[in-house]
Amino acid sequence: MSLASPPPEGATRAGGRAHGAALHRRDVVAELLADRGDLLVVAGLGASAWDCAAAGDHPLTFSLWGGMGQATMMGLGLALARRDRRVLVLTGDGEMLMGLGALATVGVQGPQNLAVVVLDNERYGETGMQPTHTAHGVDLSAVARACGFRRTMVVTSGQEIPGLRTAVHTGDGPLLAVVKVLAESPPLVLPPRDGLLLKERFRRALAGEMPAPQ
Protein backbone atom coordinates (compact mmCIF):
# COMPACT_ATOMS: atom_id res chain seq x y z
CA MET A 1 0.00 0.00 0.00
CA SER A 2 1.09 3.54 -0.56
CA LEU A 3 1.03 5.60 2.59
CA ALA A 4 1.77 8.74 0.65
CA SER A 5 -1.56 8.57 -1.12
CA PRO A 6 -4.31 11.08 -0.31
CA PRO A 7 -6.45 10.40 2.74
CA PRO A 8 -9.01 7.68 2.26
CA GLU A 9 -12.56 8.48 1.41
CA GLY A 10 -14.45 9.20 4.59
CA ALA A 11 -11.30 9.84 6.62
CA THR A 12 -13.05 12.65 8.44
CA ARG A 13 -15.97 10.46 9.47
CA ALA A 14 -16.00 9.10 12.96
CA GLY A 15 -15.07 5.43 13.15
CA GLY A 16 -14.81 3.24 10.09
CA ARG A 17 -12.03 1.45 8.37
CA ALA A 18 -8.53 2.81 8.66
CA HIS A 19 -6.53 3.00 5.48
CA GLY A 20 -5.91 -0.57 4.28
CA ALA A 21 -6.48 -2.04 7.70
CA ALA A 22 -8.23 -5.28 8.52
CA LEU A 23 -6.57 -6.14 11.82
CA HIS A 24 -8.20 -5.97 15.23
CA ARG A 25 -5.92 -4.21 17.71
CA ARG A 26 -6.80 -6.57 20.56
CA ASP A 27 -5.80 -9.61 18.48
CA VAL A 28 -2.48 -8.03 17.54
CA VAL A 29 -1.58 -7.12 21.12
CA ALA A 30 -2.69 -10.50 22.49
CA GLU A 31 -0.44 -12.28 20.00
CA LEU A 32 2.54 -10.03 20.71
CA LEU A 33 2.19 -10.44 24.49
CA ALA A 34 1.34 -14.17 24.62
CA ASP A 35 4.16 -16.10 26.32
CA ARG A 36 5.92 -12.79 26.75
CA GLY A 37 8.88 -14.25 28.62
CA ASP A 38 11.02 -11.50 30.14
CA LEU A 39 9.63 -8.75 27.91
CA LEU A 40 9.29 -5.31 29.53
CA VAL A 41 6.34 -3.29 28.22
CA VAL A 42 5.48 0.40 28.20
CA ALA A 43 1.94 1.09 27.01
CA GLY A 44 1.03 4.50 25.64
CA LEU A 45 -2.04 6.20 27.01
CA GLY A 46 -5.49 5.35 25.75
CA ALA A 47 -6.49 2.35 23.70
CA SER A 48 -2.99 0.85 23.66
CA ALA A 49 -3.03 0.66 27.45
CA TRP A 50 -6.51 -0.87 27.40
CA ASP A 51 -5.30 -3.44 24.83
CA CYS A 52 -2.44 -4.45 27.12
CA ALA A 53 -4.82 -4.74 30.06
CA ALA A 54 -7.13 -6.92 27.95
CA ALA A 55 -4.16 -9.18 27.20
CA GLY A 56 -3.67 -9.60 30.96
CA ASP A 57 -2.50 -7.15 33.60
CA HIS A 58 1.18 -7.70 34.34
CA PRO A 59 3.58 -6.04 36.81
CA LEU A 60 6.13 -5.58 34.02
CA THR A 61 3.71 -3.57 31.91
CA PHE A 62 3.80 0.13 32.72
CA SER A 63 0.60 1.69 31.42
CA LEU A 64 0.42 5.43 30.91
CA TRP A 65 -2.78 7.31 31.79
CA GLY A 66 -1.19 10.63 30.83
CA GLY A 67 2.14 11.97 29.67
CA MET A 68 1.06 11.81 26.04
CA GLY A 69 4.13 11.60 23.82
CA GLN A 70 6.34 10.06 26.52
CA ALA A 71 5.93 6.33 25.88
CA THR A 72 8.85 5.90 23.49
CA MET A 73 11.20 7.91 25.71
CA MET A 74 10.23 5.78 28.70
CA GLY A 75 11.05 2.76 26.60
CA LEU A 76 14.43 4.24 25.74
CA GLY A 77 15.33 4.99 29.36
CA LEU A 78 14.33 1.47 30.32
CA ALA A 79 16.17 -0.13 27.40
CA LEU A 80 19.38 1.75 28.24
CA ALA A 81 19.04 0.85 31.91
CA ARG A 82 18.45 -2.85 31.24
CA ARG A 83 20.43 -3.95 28.18
CA ASP A 84 19.84 -7.55 29.24
CA ARG A 85 16.07 -7.28 28.66
CA ARG A 86 13.83 -6.74 25.66
CA VAL A 87 11.71 -3.61 25.84
CA LEU A 88 8.49 -3.12 23.88
CA VAL A 89 6.66 0.18 23.59
CA LEU A 90 3.08 -0.39 22.48
CA THR A 91 1.42 2.84 21.55
CA GLY A 92 -0.97 4.57 19.20
CA ASP A 93 -0.44 6.85 16.23
CA GLY A 94 -1.68 9.94 18.06
CA GLU A 95 0.60 9.31 21.03
CA MET A 96 3.58 8.68 18.74
CA LEU A 97 2.90 11.82 16.73
CA MET A 98 3.02 13.92 19.89
CA GLY A 99 6.49 12.62 20.66
CA LEU A 100 7.92 12.47 17.15
CA GLY A 101 11.24 13.90 18.34
CA ALA A 102 11.72 10.76 20.42
CA LEU A 103 12.25 8.82 17.19
CA ALA A 104 15.25 11.01 16.40
CA THR A 105 16.57 10.58 19.93
CA VAL A 106 16.16 6.80 19.83
CA GLY A 107 17.76 6.68 16.38
CA VAL A 108 20.85 8.41 17.75
CA GLN A 109 21.10 6.04 20.74
CA GLY A 110 20.38 2.92 18.67
CA PRO A 111 19.33 0.54 21.46
CA GLN A 112 19.31 -3.00 20.09
CA ASN A 113 16.81 -4.16 22.72
CA LEU A 114 14.05 -1.63 21.98
CA ALA A 115 10.99 -2.17 19.80
CA VAL A 116 8.23 0.36 19.22
CA VAL A 117 4.94 -0.96 17.85
CA VAL A 118 2.48 1.70 16.74
CA LEU A 119 -1.11 0.48 16.61
CA ASP A 120 -2.16 2.83 13.83
CA ASN A 121 -5.91 3.29 13.46
CA GLU A 122 -5.34 6.73 11.93
CA ARG A 123 -7.63 8.14 14.59
CA TYR A 124 -7.67 9.83 17.99
CA GLY A 125 -9.75 7.00 19.39
CA GLU A 126 -10.37 8.42 22.85
CA THR A 127 -11.68 11.79 21.73
CA GLY A 128 -14.17 11.02 18.99
CA MET A 129 -12.21 9.22 16.28
CA GLN A 130 -10.85 12.36 14.67
CA PRO A 131 -8.31 11.53 11.92
CA THR A 132 -4.65 11.80 12.89
CA HIS A 133 -1.89 12.87 10.54
CA THR A 134 -1.39 9.23 9.52
CA ALA A 135 -4.87 9.31 7.97
CA HIS A 136 -3.47 11.95 5.66
CA GLY A 137 -0.46 9.90 4.64
CA VAL A 138 2.14 10.69 7.28
CA ASP A 139 4.25 7.53 7.42
CA LEU A 140 5.68 6.87 10.88
CA SER A 141 7.78 3.95 9.64
CA ALA A 142 9.43 6.22 7.08
CA VAL A 143 10.10 8.78 9.81
CA ALA A 144 11.70 6.11 11.98
CA ARG A 145 13.79 4.87 9.05
CA ALA A 146 14.97 8.40 8.36
CA CYS A 147 15.85 8.72 12.04
CA GLY A 148 18.17 5.71 11.87
CA PHE A 149 16.04 2.88 13.25
CA ARG A 150 17.71 -0.39 12.31
CA ARG A 151 14.46 -1.95 11.19
CA THR A 152 11.04 -0.63 10.26
CA MET A 153 7.92 -2.50 9.19
CA VAL A 154 4.40 -1.73 8.07
CA VAL A 155 2.07 -4.59 8.97
CA THR A 156 -1.35 -4.83 7.37
CA SER A 157 -2.26 -8.51 7.57
CA GLY A 158 -2.48 -11.23 10.17
CA GLN A 159 0.08 -13.36 8.35
CA GLU A 160 2.74 -10.78 9.18
CA ILE A 161 2.14 -10.82 12.94
CA PRO A 162 4.35 -13.88 13.71
CA GLY A 163 7.24 -12.15 11.93
CA LEU A 164 6.58 -9.00 13.93
CA ARG A 165 6.48 -11.04 17.11
CA THR A 166 9.87 -12.56 16.33
CA ALA A 167 11.32 -9.14 15.57
CA VAL A 168 9.98 -7.74 18.85
CA HIS A 169 11.13 -10.64 21.01
CA THR A 170 14.49 -11.50 19.45
CA GLY A 171 15.37 -9.17 16.57
CA ASP A 172 18.04 -6.48 16.50
CA GLY A 173 16.57 -3.08 17.25
CA PRO A 174 15.75 -0.39 17.38
CA LEU A 175 12.63 -1.53 15.57
CA LEU A 176 9.58 0.52 14.72
CA ALA A 177 6.57 -1.31 13.34
CA VAL A 178 3.41 0.40 12.21
CA VAL A 179 0.50 -2.00 12.48
CA LYS A 180 -2.54 -0.76 10.58
CA VAL A 181 -5.58 -1.60 12.70
CA LEU A 182 -9.30 -1.04 12.37
CA ALA A 183 -10.74 2.14 13.80
CA GLU A 184 -12.81 0.45 16.45
CA SER A 185 -13.38 0.82 20.18
CA PRO A 186 -13.41 -2.58 21.86
CA PRO A 187 -14.97 -2.84 25.34
CA LEU A 188 -12.87 -1.04 27.96
CA VAL A 189 -10.47 -3.16 29.97
CA LEU A 190 -8.55 -0.85 32.25
CA PRO A 191 -5.14 -1.25 33.90
CA PRO A 192 -4.62 0.05 37.45
CA ARG A 193 -4.69 3.83 37.41
CA ASP A 194 -2.57 4.36 40.52
CA GLY A 195 0.72 5.63 39.08
CA LEU A 196 2.64 4.94 42.28
CA LEU A 197 1.44 1.35 42.31
CA LEU A 198 2.35 0.89 38.64
CA LYS A 199 5.85 2.24 39.25
CA GLU A 200 6.53 0.35 42.45
CA ARG A 201 5.29 -3.02 41.29
CA PHE A 202 7.28 -2.72 38.05
CA ARG A 203 10.47 -1.86 39.91
CA ARG A 204 10.00 -4.62 42.47
CA ALA A 205 9.20 -7.24 39.84
CA LEU A 206 12.19 -6.22 37.74
CA ALA A 207 14.54 -6.07 40.70
CA GLY A 208 13.50 -9.62 41.54
CA GLU A 209 12.08 -8.79 44.94
CA MET A 210 8.77 -10.14 43.76
CA PRO A 211 8.42 -12.90 41.18
CA ALA A 212 6.60 -11.82 38.05
CA PRO A 213 3.60 -14.08 37.42
CA GLN A 214 3.64 -15.75 34.06
Binding site: A71, M73, M74, L76, G77, L80, A102, R203, L206
Partner: peptide, 13 residues
Amino acid sequence: EGVGLSAGAWLGG
Protein backbone atom coordinates in the same frame (compact mmCIF):
# COMPACT_ATOMS: atom_id res chain seq x y z
CA GLU B 1 11.82 13.78 26.34
CA GLY B 2 14.12 13.83 29.35
CA VAL B 3 11.26 13.36 31.81
CA GLY B 4 10.14 10.18 30.03
CA LEU B 5 13.74 9.00 29.80
CA SER B 6 14.26 9.55 33.53
CA ALA B 7 11.05 7.69 34.36
CA GLY B 8 11.94 4.74 32.15
CA ALA B 9 15.48 4.64 33.48
CA TRP B 10 14.17 4.45 37.04
CA LEU B 11 11.76 1.65 36.15
CA GLY B 12 14.94 -0.15 35.18
CA GLY B 13 16.80 0.92 38.32
